[in-house]
Write a protein that binds this DNA or RNA. Structure first.
Lengths: 230, 230
DNA sequence: CAGTGGTCTAGACCACGGT
DNA sequence: CCGTGGTCTAGACCACTGT
């Protein structure tokens, strides 16, 4: 007998879901029964179904068993690469230009994102990422110097704050937001687009435990799209 | 002795990564060694490290062992709820209005998204999703009737195509993209915003195997943001 | 209380891919 | 070749939760 892989068990479960053999809302056999029916160990069934549950196709609860989701919440995983990698993977040459680096006090919306008011001056960095010499992405970043010792002496003219922080500041997690804005005069000038153009914006605040490290807002040149599969 | 959970093994691994005990780029002990050191089974170590590898923090290769990623590609998971659920979870009352439903031939960009040219007429649906009676999201959808038998007789005035399809068309996967556009005259009128306003757009094409089912473009009213954590 | 999923274990075999 | 991760198995105990 050929031993089943968890992938084949998962494929069989997907087939039954798609064929309506297990219709939406229905309860499916429990792990022990499936293992016996398919001829594999329960752990294999568990591995297969666990992933489907994580993907939102199944809902599992102890004692209540496993059901096919009525309203599957599709989950798309976005990869958040370093901007340089993003540009290079699109087949362009990467370029970088520091626009501004100074200390100052963050505007209210950044302070709110950081939670407790930061009394210390923060570091403000504005930079432009280029793809084949064309503006690709405008970076507007605030860094909490208290979270990153030694940062006040770093010059971000040669290396982007993005990459420096990845290598020098261990972070444990972050918030991530995504939206659209009309380019203001300054962004339009830096990105070489018309004022009012619709820009994709990505905002990210990263933390080391409960200590905010940095908050960055990326504005992408018009036409930028993020792609993934579900 | 208390048995370790895979979560605690994972937490210990994360601690070593964040503390630079396992610095970026370094090779870490193999599974058998870690299992012995921590006092658990190798399968437990495997489960813990596999998830970290999936998250992009570790890179694992047979024979070569496991290394801490130099440039961790953070992966953010976006949940793609049914629009009604999205609106309700934001605390608004959901409303829906069908704007247009007819048969016709899709524009070139949709046909390209669908791959092989669709010779049969497709169904075009335009609808508006409302949050507390205010326009929230404009839906522009093309449906392949060959993939969804019986759809030509469905009236989407009462139920959104979104929900009808979820319940009646099994799909196996899809492409997902999002970007930003300036509202054109029509979108501005339907969404009640000014022409030129920056709108978040989500485009999704879903498939049943290799058969395209539907391609939808959602344009969200100004101010919409998608949020997640990494 | 009892059924179900969640997890751990010890051992085994195998696939991949550096060397 | 052979070390390493990937996976399967059979059995066990436990945590949660519906009844």
């Amino acid at each position: 007998m050929t031993t089943l892989t968890w992938q084949s068990v998962q494929a069989e479960a997907l087939r039954r879901i798609h064929s309506r053999e297990w219709p939406p809302g229905a309860q499916i056999p429990n792990e022990a029964e499936l293992a016996m029916e398919l001829g594999c160990a329960r752990a294999t069934v568990n591995r297969a179904l666990r992933e489907l549950a994580e993907a939102g196709l199944l809902e599992r609860r102890r004692k209540a068993g496993t059901r096919v989701s009525l309203h599957p919440v599709r989950k798309a995983t976005l990869e958040i690469p370093i901007i340089r990698k993003d540009i290079e993977s699109r087949g362009f040459a990467y370029g970088y230009r520091l626009l501004e680096q100074r200390e100052g006090h963050a505007p209210a919306d950044i302070q709110i994102a950081f939670g407790p008011p930061m009394r210390q001056a923060m570091i403000h960095v504005r930079a432009l990422h280029l793809a084949d010499s064309a503006p690709f992405c405008l970076e507007d970043r605030w860094i909490n110097p208290a979270a990153v010792p030694g940062i006040t002496t770093v010059d971000f003219a040669g290396q982007s704050a993005n990459e420096w922080l990845v290598q020098n500041a261990a972070f444990s997690g972050g918030d991530f937001g995504f939206g659209a804005v009309n380019a203001d005069e300054i962004a339009a000038r830096d990105l070489g687009c018309t004022p009012g153009a619709a820009l994709v914006t990505v905002e990210r605040t990263t933390w080391a435990g409960s200590l905010p490290i940095t908050s960055v807002r990326l504005s992408y040149a018009p036409g930028y799209r993020m792609l993934t599969t579900i």
